[in-house]
Nucleic acid binder design. Sequence first.
DNA 1: GCCTGCTTCTTGAAACTTGAACAATCCGGG
DNA 2: CCCGGATTGTTCAAGTTTCAAGAAGCAGGC
Lengths: 177, 177
Amino acid sequence: MNTAPASVPEPAPAPDGAHRWLTDEEQRVWRSYLHATTLLEDHLDRQLQRDAGMPHIYYGLLVQLAEAPRRRLRMTELAMNAKITRSRLSHAIARLEKSGWVRREDCPSDRRGQFTVLTEEGYGVLRETAPGHVHAVRQALFERLSPEQQKSLGEIMQIVAEGLQPDEAGADLPWLR
Amino acid sequence: MNTAPASVPEPAPAPDGAHRWLTDEEQRVWRSYLHATTLLEDHLDRQLQRDAGMPHIYYGLLVQLAEAPRRRLRMTELAMNAKITRSRLSHAIARLEKSGWVRREDCPSDRRGQFTVLTEEGYGVLRETAPGHVHAVRQALFERLSPEQQKSLGEIMQIVAEGLQPDEAGADLPWLR
DNA sequence: GCCTGCTTCTTGAAACTTGAACAATCCGGG
DNA sequence: CCCGGATTGTTCAAGTTTCAAGAAGCAGGC
């Protein structure tokens, strides 16, 4: 959960600055980050498990489907949107299908492909539970931050995501890099 | 993963402001947040699984132990520090013990209690893998943010954590509230 | 047509997490 | 002393995630 603490022996200060520990201030920021993100994720997971009977990530899958044209997506696309592996998605969809919130359909143009379709029932669950979830997010996050902080948070998270992403934008334009 | 999307029917605008959707801007911030935190956690988990043979959370447990006096902590205290349940900790410690990085010791003053002690071997693993982990954190986060952004992130996460915590500071001083 | 390599999705086993239930112990009051 | 309630840590079962492997279909070159 944390980076190397003070009590872990410091590595020899590398000439080039590699292997540099975090400063005290960085350490504080990092621990706050871990602390807050852990608590928030736990909080939302419990909220949704209680009110919707599924973990946060599964809820996110239903949301993605609800937003998609004809409320359906190919497995691979859904997996990419949700930033999870296809394998994980397969298991998740199997579970959601068992709950009746989702249904599979063959893709006519590619016989390997599968669509996942949000059922009426799944849509209903979303409609019923979305307000509570939004409320939880609002209460835990937005109500506590000033407009400037919200803006700043957005920018920061944007930057971090871009740095970690396997190059989403321009991934199909490799010659630009 | 996401809050209610545009395509989920809006709840009747409650007079008191309950059940309010997120604004477009809030929505953007929230999705950036989810996106970034997911990617970062995945990134660090893989990094540590690869280089240290354990998930991020387990690494955090070792760090906590390394920082503690005599490199040992009671189960409950460790669980609270790491923000996980006692149950989860029990499993985790069992695994770390099997790996030889940690060892249990009875608490002399409370026969229900257990100490978890970081072994020399566990300490060694930490010493070897900490630099790589710090590097990953630095690279994914601090190198990409301006000093102002780092400061801002710290403040924001502090606020969020405080809002969610079962009242850590002052929990034993209830008369102050 | 028929390889070869790639993509799509699924599967199975092992690892990890969750929540409830539990035994053992502590602690304060009567 | 003894009881009831609280705390400590573990365990079980069910659910979720990961990783490696694999079946099936596509697509291009020959």
